[in-house]
Design a protein around this nucleic acid. Structure first.
Lengths: 144, 144
DNA sequence: TCTGTCGTAACAATTAACGTTGCGACTGCC
DNA sequence: GGCAGTCGCAACGTTAATTGTTACGACAGA
């Protein structure tokens, strides 16, 4: 698990844009964010593109182009970000269909499916309790 | 996320061994389990090896060799299995250190660390609520 | 028209999980 | 004592997802 920093980078980008806008700037560029996150601008553009599809950010093209928040940080939760950037379920089933002739092979997938759905629902509730405003506050509270 | 069926396969194997033992057999072989899970015996042996290190199963070598439960299914939870087979944390940080000169780059990792720890603790509690006995019961309850 | 940035495709690099083969080690049974 | 069945484990190939990189057209303000 977790070769996966998409949620972290997305939160980083949103916090960066939010802070930058509070400092009076209109838009933030993918290059600025990429420098802060120490990665490539295209990686940031890809992630922000998914956040735009989810209605969390907007982008402007042409000269003076860049990214801005579509909503206040208070109204965005980690769940919004998670659902925007994480494609699949948390736990995966077998990659190949188990032996349906076997009692266990036959019943294991529906069984685990039901269990996993409950767990993921709880995870979602936890993610929904954290707003990006919370994240930014924690970021600024870090000792230097 | 979730290129990861380790927890599912491990639960499958434990349920299989548990049911097999209830049918009066002493030990189960990795080949039997692999047939049920539709995978390779070595994959099963690797997983069960981790479960053995966690004290959930035992293995016997030589003739009449195989695997058996070290504890009752009622006393095993998905958390025990999860901790035995999942190495890292659920969410990862940046793969490269963010720009420490930037306020956000400097504070983002401690901020996310704290948030993630709380969420993973909740996940652990959820996993701890499901025993392997629950899993086996759900497996046997599946319609055929 | 020029310039800076997004949008997106294409491909390489990296990483983790999964699959497969091979072979030595072990132990009950003949 | 030898045989047969299975584990233990190393080695390597395969697959898939993410991340990193390069390239280039599209867009819009100056």
């Amino acid at each position: 698990m977790s070769a996966n920093s998409r949620l972290t980078i997305a939160a980083h980008a949103l916090a960066w844009i939010g802070l930058y806008q509070r400092q009076g700037h209109e838009v933030a560029t993918s290059e600025q964010i990429a420098t802060s996150a120490n990665t490539n601008p295209v990686v940031i553009r890809r992630l922000l593109g998914e956040l735009r599809r989810a209605g969390l950010v907007e982008s402007r093209r042409g000269a003076g182009a860049g990214w801005s928040l579509a909503r206040e940080l208070e109204s965005m939760t980690l769940l919004d970000v998670y659902e925007a950037v994480e494609p699949g379920p948390l736990f995966a089933m077998h990659r190949t269909t188990p032996d349906q002739e076997c009692v266990v092979g036959h019943g294991i997938q529906p069984a685990m499916q039901g269990i996993y759905e409950g767990i993921e629902e709880t995870l979602r509730q936890e993610l929904a309790r954290v707003t990006l405003e919370n994240v930014l506050r924690d970021v600024l509270a870090a000792p230097r």
